[in-house]
Design a protein around this nucleic acid. Structure first.
Lengths: 272, 272
DNA sequence: ATAATAGTGTCTATCAGACATTATCTG
DNA sequence: CAGATAATGTCTGATAGACACTATTAT
């Protein structure tokens, strides 16, 4: 198999003389949308970093970092995740790669977007109240995205319009965000957020990501609230429990409900 | 909003003095999995390019090209698609970005993979029988991938094993390919193929990509064969027709079946 | 006529949506 | 006890899977 090319070179010779060329190359970052459930399981929360330098100085942004030539994008994302939250071994999946020229005013930068899901157990203490990193409540409906943190008095709001796009024979609708608050996310990070939520909603029923947002043991009311927070709409209790019953099993224990008052709740684990 | 950073620079001053730095940057290509239906609607076909130089000289590979700094990855994919097939305006969607160091022995190259779907109408004449580009029959079952072209006497076969992976709290199965034929696809292009088929199978019921693989008007037997080719398994006729009925409407015409013998077939179009 | 294809009827099991009811716990 | 939460019962309509049957065409 020592085939020679048209210049009579073997592969070894070819590679030895290969010149990477001087055409332009982009920088590539791995940016992460880190999601968790808030304390009372009423909505998703999202971890953001405050930018300390141009461009978008003072804006909140997704954590991220440049990819090195001896690592995969996934590893770069895991590394950034560890640096920003101390967490590893949690759900981390590639979402989409953003490549629009000019999306970073400094230079040519592509971003490979990842989604990370933090179990309710990991409250990620110490990263909650620093000056340049904070958890925000995330509310994502059909008509708006609301990212807010009361303590920091920050509220970032986008109106959403559905717009029709064409791809070959099929049409599909996409959310188009319009900022309506003074503050906004840095770069094109809203679009990463929209794409990640869209994918999570599409997949949650058959890929079971909900189990990455609760503790190892959980109650069905808790789990239902995770689904409702992700899907952005209420679910019928009985239908939900019928649907979920094949995916869980009882631990035998009971748990006092985290929602004050009322009957004790049966404890479950994920059946894999 | 002319905020200054810690060096006392405005954004304009900062960008003017910004140095892209001399850390390494990867080359980034857009590679395309181009799928169509074969002549008798019995299986998918895939367009491959024969490599004329190292590395993987003589191997068949997905069409692709480097992304330029004034275009999106999508535009680069559309450009390559046009060059290789003459087609534009067909279904084209981003699948996944492959970043493993060493995946290209020449230099650091990432690949943003795209999936293109060619309507049955476009037989893509002139690209069918050239020396360095050809359509291959693609058979993708649970246990093997078979890529074959009788005229060229090429047969590329991979055995598939399902392997369990863990991502946070959830486990999932992935196909792991093992080449069993002498010939094989260049680079990590099998993995792109596997990922693209997986995504297509997940989405076809609610994203309606099947309509991008038939002509503008089609019959239900044709459409069913598209679903069966994509999913790699037979479907019940009645269930299929019930499921699809809300998505199509009759044109009022009939069509002689492309499957020889038997009754004439009702003609439909896609209802959007 | 025969074989192949196109299209419909019907039964069952399952499941989401919807609403009502019972059970258990806190204060 | 009142009020809140947890859990179950039951009806309806839609739908996938399965199989049987009728209708139409080429050879």
């Amino acid at each position: 198999m020592n085939k020679k090319n048209k210049d009579g070179l073997t592969e070894k010779e070819f590679l030895a003389g290969y010149n990477a060329g001087d055409y332009k190359r982009p920088s590539v970052t791995a940016d992460i949308l880190i999601l968790g459930m808030n304390e009372d399981y009423s909505s998703l929360k999202i971890l953001l970093i405050k930018r300390g330098d141009h461009p978008f100085i003072g804006c909140w942004a997704l954590p991220g970092g440049f990819i090195k030539d001896n690592e995969t994008a996934h590893k770069a994302a895991a590394r950034t995740l560890k640096e920003e939250t101390g967490l590893s071994g949690i759900y981390l999946d590639q979402i989409y790669t953003f490549t629009k020229p000019g999306r970073d005013p400094r230079t040519w930068v592509m971003s490979i977007a990842y989604l990370a899901l933090v179990p309710a157990l990991d409250e990620v203490k110490g990263y909650d109240d620093t000056d340049d990193a904070a958890w925000f409540d995330l509310r994502f409906t059909d008509s708006a995205i609301e990212i807010s943190n009361e303590e920091k008095d920050v509220q970032i709001v986008y109106d959403l319009k559905k717009e029709e796009f064409v791809n070959g024979a099929i049409r599909y609708e996409n959310y188009v965000p319009k900022p309506v608050s003074k503050e906004r996310l840095a770069f094109d990070h809203v679009e990463i957020l929209i794409e990640a939520i869209k994918r999570l909603r599409e997949q949650i029923y058959y890929n079971d990501q909900a189990f990455c947002l609760v503790e190892k043991t959980f109650t069905l009311p808790e789990l239902q609230r995770v689904y409702e927070a992700v899907l952005g709409k209420p679910l019928y209790k009985k239908s939900f429990r019928d649907m979920i019953s094949a995916k869980v099993e009882e631990t035998g224990s009971e748990k006092t409900s985290r929602f004050k008052g009322g009957r004790r709740s049966t404890e479950y684990t994920f059946r894999s």
